[in-house]
Design a protein around this nucleic acid. Structure first.
Lengths: 229, 229
DNA sequence: TCAAAAGTGTTAAGTTTACACCCATGA
DNA sequence: TCATGGGTGTAAACTTAACACTTTTGA
């Protein structure tokens, strides 16, 4: 780099850069968020999203992945950037710019020890308390964005186990969009998606008759897949 | 702030924070972008978006507004954050995290002197050259996002003068979505939007017969407005 | 009088919604 | 044998798409 190039950058201020993660799970017919009851400063005692600072040599996306892994032990999670929050006073302690990411996880799979160690809890969406800073807006924006993505791409399945019944799938979408759906119309739609395929296995945990288990086939979806719910 | 709070922040690195602006205009039936042919370092001689650093005491949104105003002289412009780009090596000079914003401007209204002074040019979308760093991705993401927003909210009109004919409006949406539309179906749809109202004036610049001029009424839209194209 | 853009309705196709009963099974 | 959740088809309502001619006016 030339001297003039160095000067070009160095006259400008630098900022702390953070990520905050809106971690969605699905259980008992409701979406839940994994939230911290903060036992550390700042804002000790209050509820917040899981967050952390971007470190040297780490991309913002990587920071988000790291933060989710720190709390849940999970890697290879479906995550998307929602929005960056850059108001000067959003963090009352010191100026921090933060990018919000949402994550979709199978609520059966997280590392309970890590979650306990962070004093984190799954909170059903309708019962989410007031969160610190601008985290309420982050949650609202993330939910909206997640709903949009779930309506045009088959990403909802990230909230379910690998294999799921159609009843589970319908309940999931009813929770995502907060509206009830017609069973026959829903099944007709899913039947038209050849990338949601029968495994041949039967789940008998919920009924005597048993329900067929399905699985999402990402390769088939890539080929020719259309999705709209 | 307590000592422990200070330590909480200070152990973490800080980053240059920039904004890059995808400025859309509409002319001759095509969308255009306002791009810089850089006559300054870094990447002198190459094409780029208009960008700049976030300054102390300035929100990221404000920085984006300032950057657009610096180039165009325009304030109160429709702008939305697209996405934040945080890869470590995205700027080969030094690490810079950048938030992309798109802006919709009336191409008849910008400050020509400022644009000239920056060596900036309107380039029709199909003719946009390769841009520096990750600006190509920014443009692609911004276009997608803008198309989505334009399909569900009446924001396209920001690219037109206050008063416009239905032919202009249709040509605009055809440019945005890169598809031709049926004149009668289009007009039927617009007629159902009572917040797009006749001014009573007639534009005779394009035909002997003259075309009715319309205007977007934001108050009426707020009341009860639905939009979908 | 004619060229050029403005303006205007109807029908067919496709999509979405509403709706109720039988099935298989284990206890 | 019966209670429970799983599974299935058809018709009406609505939305979207396709399509061609008349009007106005200034040169």
């Amino acid at each position: 780099m030339t001297a003039s190039e160095k000067a070009y950058y160095s006259v400008h201020p630098k900022f702390h850069m953070a990520v905050d993660c809106i971690i969605f799970g699905f259980e008992d017919g409701e979406l839940s968020l994994l939230l911290l009851k903060r036992n550390f400063e700042p804002a000790k005692g209050q509820w917040s999203l899981m967050g952390g600072f971007v470190e040297e040599g780490e991309s913002v996306d990587d920071a988000a992945r790291r933060i989710v892994a720190q709390l849940t032990g999970l890697t290879d999670i479906y995550m998307r950037q929602v929005k960056t929050y850059g108001n000067v006073d959003r963090d009352p302690g010191e100026r921090v710019i933060s990018s919000a990411y949402y994550a979709l996880v199978d609520i059966k799979k997280y590392d309970h020890t890590l979650v306990q160690a962070h004093n984190a809890f799954w909170v059903k969406l309708p019962e989410v308390p007031h969160l610190i800073f601008d985290h309420d807006s982050m949650v609202a924006d993330a939910l909206r964005f997640m709903q949009y993505q779930a309506s045009i791409k088959p990403v909802g399945m990230n909230l379910l186990p690998e294999e799921f019944t159609l009843t589970q799938l319908q309940t999931l979408y009813e929770a995502i969009f907060r509206e009830s759906m017609d069973k026959r119309n829903f099944r007709k739609k899913i039947a038209s998606m050849d990338y949601i395929e029968k495994t041949g296995k039967i789940d008998k945990t919920l009924s005597r008759k048993g329900a067929a288990l399905y699985r999402f086939n990402p390769e088939r979806f890539k080929e020719n897949g259309q999705f709209k719910i």
